[in-house]
């Protein structure tokens, strides 16, 4: 089974990377984009285990290492493939 972890800057934090990508998209003519946030995507291959247990453990990893909860939020998805 696999864990997919999405880490993004918190909403109220200035994200200069997202801003730069946003203005590049404007330059390309995509006028429908209001805001861009750039984050990280981490995948973990896990040993087979109950989904709840896997999710709790990966969330713990996020709080300890994968994300900086002062400035980032995270979301964990567990898939069976």
């Amino acid at each position: 089974m696999k864990a997919l972890v999405y880490i993004t800057p918190k909403a109220d934090i200035l994200d200069p990377q997202g801003k730069a990508v946003g203005s590049a998209l404007q330059d390309l003519g995509y006028e429908g984009v209001d805001e861009v946030k750039v984050g990280r995507y981490v995948t973990l291959q896990l040993k087979s285990q109950p989904v709840d247990q896997a999710k709790a453990q990966v969330e713990d990893m996020c709080r300890k290492l994968l994300a900086n909860i002062n400035v980032e939020t995270f979301r964990v998805e567990i898939t069976e493939d």
Partner: peptide, 10 residues
């Protein structure tokens, strides 16, 4: 406390 983020100049 706090964090050091990417410079606003990128």
């Amino acid at each position: 406390p706090g964090a050091l983020l990417k410079n606003n100049t990128l």
